[in-house]
């Protein structure tokens, strides 16, 4: 398996504070990696370091073997789908959902060209995959948080990315939508072997295909290994600074805080 993301000794700032400190890690093609950790640990910053939107102070980030910098980064970003945590969209934003998904194609289409029938076909396929056809003619600002998340995922997939970065994709969703999106992430990963980096707070809901877990605390990587090893009471209790218990069921594990601990 070739390495698609190579992060070497990277320090990234967010405003005046350091949000990631001296991180080194590699992500192999086709991997589904989950990232977890307390608030402010640097999870979102890790994603923005990969797609070149974060401010790298030291070290280097290479994606597909090319260093992420300047104009090269803009080109590489066309192949990296990014679903940010939350967007604040004005209710009157003059844009329909269909355009918001097509926007994912804009980088690939390039300057001076309009979306081709092929672009429309890709968008249509993604719309069916995510199940948002009934939303297409709605103004983007009218959607609920969960619906906007689905549109954001559709936009990222419309890019036909080689890497998909998802920042808490199920945080605003109801239980059924959470399941739909997680199954979708699993399915896309299975079908396309799409390299996926997933920031997740819900450790009980990790996608089945997730084989690697990166845990961040205080801007540093404190664990990088298998999901089985990560879902350990001692590891997670240390990570979150409170007593956690892990209940194993036939469908997976449940991670919860110990009452009265």
């Amino acid at each position: 398996m070739s390495v698609v993301v190579d992060i070497q000794n990277v320090t990234v700032s967010y405003r005046e504070s350091v949000a990631l400190r001296s991180i080194s890690l590699r992500i192999e093609e086709g991997a589904l990696v989950s990232v977890a950790g307390p608030n402010g640990a640097g999870k979102t910053t890790l994603l923005t370091a990969i797609n070149g939107l974060g401010r790298v102070l030291q070290g280097s980030v290479s994606v597909f073997g090319t260093k992420m910098a300047g104009r090269t980064a803009t080109g590489i970003r066309k192949e990296i789908g990014y679903v940010p945590q939350m967007l604040s969209i004005d209710v009157r934003m003059p844009m329909k959902v269909e355009e918001a998904v097509m926007l994912g194609r804009y980088g690939r289409i390039g300057f001076f060209k309009r979306p081709s029938p092929r672009d429309r076909e890709i968008v249509s396929d993604v719309v069916d995959l995510i199940g948002i056809r009934d939303l297409l003619s709605r103004p983007i600002g009218h959607l609920s948080g969960g619906e906007q998340k689905k549109v954001a995922i559709a936009r990222a997939l419309a890019q036909e990315p080689r890497i998909l970065l998802l920042d808490e994709p199920i945080s605003d969703l109801d239980i059924s939508a959470q399941q739909t999106i997680l199954n979708l992430i699993d399915r896309i990963h299975e079908q396309k072997r799409l390299t996926t980096v997933l920031v997740m707070h819900h450790l009980s809901l990790l996608p089945g295909n997730c084989s690697r877990m990166i845990l961040l605390k205080d801007t540093k990587v404190v664990f990088d290994g298998s999901v089985e090893d990560a879902l350990n009471e001692d590891v997670l209790s240390r990570l979150y600074g409170c007593r956690l218990e892990i209940i194993k069921t036939e469908h997976g594990v449940i991670v919860q805080a110990k009452v009265n601990a």
Binding site: G75, E79, L103, R108
Partner: peptide, 15 residues
């Protein structure tokens, strides 16, 4: 249109 929608999203799709 992409920049009006959201600058970060516009950058993330490679514009």
């Amino acid at each position: 249109q992409a920049v009006i929608f959201d600058r970060e999203i516009a950058a993330s799709v490679g514009i």
